[in-house]
Design a protein around this nucleic acid. Structure first.
Lengths: 152, 152
DNA sequence: CCGTATTCTTTTGATATCAAACAATCATGT
DNA sequence: ACATGATTGTTTGATATCAAAAGAATACGG
């Protein structure tokens, strides 16, 4: 007796993945939200990821790559790449840490602050609309669920 | 009287974005989940995104790009690019739709089905672990929240 | 049948993403 | 001071991502 070799996977397996996979659902939702915020921030020439990175630079001590990467949930090498267009535009400066010359600190420039002042307003409006569309309860459930993933 | 031009954004604005931005939280969680599933699927040479795409091909009628893109929440042009490495490996075949020659249908190959049979098992185990780490309640809240974003 | 608008997909160009390998620096013990 | 191992970033190579524009084919109105 040979094993069956159907042309396709069992339909119930396909349905199971489609309806329950949190990874797929998260990628879908992340893409959708990214497009929404990208569109809103486009007049300022920022993407949602650049916005998040720039927000994180507003600390008394310019943060190092190594501290920023976990905060953004990304690989340090991704951050290295993401910094380049922003540095090119003069929105931040990469400066070596005098205390530890391996470390690079990302300092926001006055131009960066000026742009971010506008960007934060755009973010506020966009996020307000998003929360309105989701509803308060869904918003809290989603926020809690996403935070739980981070603690995984 | 001139406006104040501090070096940084107001700390409360920074905190507000950091603690409430659903876009940032979604990107973070999506990256984390992607890495987890990528690692689990790596022995099979698949990424989480390739897995999701391949699962979706298991339909009697090979789906067209235009139908798949919304399902995966991505731009059609992204899908066009994503198909190439999979087609190169012979896991799927791009075939023109005889009814509408603008449309391209993605047909999973027997090799694709064979690989996916293993991949679904990996997915099952990985997802079981994830749900265990999240807890049933968090899992449902997250799933509901992500679905709500899709309906936005 | 013809012309035009619409639909479906691809290309292009820029950025994003990660793993793996590498380079530079620091820290520690001797 | 030195050797060794750990830490911090970057580079490389492959894939992923989108918007805008362009190409190909269909649909629709006249």
């Amino acid at each position: 007796m040979s094993e069956a070799r159907p042309d396709l996977l069992p339909p119930e397996a396909v349905r199971h993945v489609r309806d329950t996979c949190l990874c797929l659902a998260a990628q879908r939702a992340a893409r959708r939200l990214a497009r929404r915020f990208d569109a809103a921030l486009r007049p300022l020439g920022l993407t949602n990821g650049q916005f998040s990175l720039m927000v994180a630079l507003n600390q008394p001590e310019p943060p190092a790559i190594g501290r920023l990467a976990p905060f953004l949930g990304m690989d340090p090498s991704t951050l290295t790449a993401a910094v380049k267009p922003l540095a090119r535009r003069g929105l931040l400066i990469v400066e070596p840490d005098p205390k530890d010359r391996r470390s690079r600190r990302l300092r926001i420039t006055p131009e960066g602050v000026a742009l971010m002042r506008q960007a934060v307003e755009v973010w506020r409006a966009t996020h307000r609309e998003l929360e309105a569309a989701l509803g308060g309860e869904r918003t809290q459930a989603l926020r809690g669920g996403l935070a739980a993933v981070d603690r995984t």
